[in-house]
Simulated scan of single mutants.
Amino acid sequence: MSAREPAGGTHDPGSDSGHLDPGDLLAYASRPLDREARDLVEAHVDRCADCRARLSRLTADEAELSSLWERVDRATDEPARSLLERCALRLGVPEDAARLCAAMPALRWSWWGGAAVLVMLTVAVARWSESTSAPLLFFALVPALSAIGVVAVTGQRFDPAYVWLAVSPLGGFRVVLLRAAAVQALSLVLSLAGAAGLPLPFPYTLGWLVPSLMLTAVCLALTSRLDALPAITLTLAAWGVWLVATYNADLPAGTRLLLPGTQLAMTAVAVLGVVALVVLRDGFDRFDKQGRTAAHGGPATGTRGLA
């Protein structure tokens, strides 16, 4: 154990004899230590037979000793659960699914912090710019962020934990849907918060919702057959073309995206994307050059292994 002070004193438990000070062991046995100091003692005792024997003599209650070693095993063997994983478990999500969802790069605080900053900037531009087309930046950015966040959970290129699909009992398609749903839920909260600050009437502030679902469905369908990078590139390129085609400076936010007819057209594209996703779902159960898992008896010809 490194030279620290579990009991808060000046004694260095690991510098002289390599064993814990008797006072530290006694403090641990009577449990007045804080969490950090307790973790240090447990880490040392777990690998030091001498200190383990000395601690056993200090703990007379056999049942308490068994409980103590169970806690030591959990502290040293089980990974810490994130806030998202603990919330998912409380909601009844299976443990393996909760761990797969919580391990996503797209659910890290750094990603959502950056996304929140971008959304706030677009809202600020919409509120303080003199241009009536300023809110268009928000409606262009939010669906793109939603699609990027989802595609980051569907391929090995962006997600080191994606290889877990090879051993997950849920199957690749179900895991992708679970992870995409988690990203979409957080994206929905962030987008709603940003939309509340737009200088537009209420119906128009929700103009990003259908485009977000459309880009997500299309991008997921593409990633069932393509690597994540070309899939998101094609999706965002098409989105840029759509924004240019629907631009109209005389309309709210400078775009036809908010009109009922355009919203219906995007809804139709979203439905087609969902249908394509269901039809092509087997692509998430194969382990090909993009790192997907094999659904029927091992890697396909010409593919690489999990290692």
Rank of each mutant, 00 (worst) to 15 (best):
W242G: 06
L280Q: 14
P22N: 08
S146Y: 05
V271T: 08
T216S: 14
L272V: 12
A238M: 13
A103K: 00
L100F: 00
Y28E: 15
P160W: 06
G291Q: 07
A53G: 10
G172N: 09
L188C: 08
F139M: 09
L258E: 07
G14S: 15
P94S: 09
R174D: 09
S168Y: 06
P203L: 11
D50G: 03
G261P: 04
R127S: 11
T301F: 09
T154W: 00
S17E: 12
M104C: 14
G197L: 04
T122R: 03
C48N: 11
L280G: 07
R81F: 01
V271D: 08
A49W: 10
D288W: 13
T233I: 12
G18A: 07
L25R: 05
R225V: 11
M266A: 14
F138M: 06
R157P: 00
R99H: 12
T205V: 11
L40N: 02
E70M: 03
P252N: 04
G305D: 09
D12T: 08
D282W: 09
S168I: 02
G302C: 05
R35D: 15
W164F: 10
A106C: 02
P160Q: 10
V153W: 01
T235C: 15
G291C: 05
R38W: 00
A217Q: 01
L100D: 13
L259Y: 02
A106V: 04
V167S: 13
E85H: 00
L188N: 04
L257V: 14
R127N: 14
L236M: 11
A75Y: 01
T205Q: 14
P6D: 08
D250W: 06
T205F: 02
G8S: 08
Q156E: 12
A300D: 08
D61H: 04
S17C: 03
E64K: 07
V142I: 13
Y204C: 01
K289E: 12
P143T: 08
A300R: 14
A295R: 15
E5P: 00
L192Q: 10
T216G: 06
A249S: 13
P201Y: 04
I148N: 01
A268E: 05
I232G: 05
P169A: 08
R71P: 02
C48L: 04
V189Q: 03
A307S: 10
A7S: 14
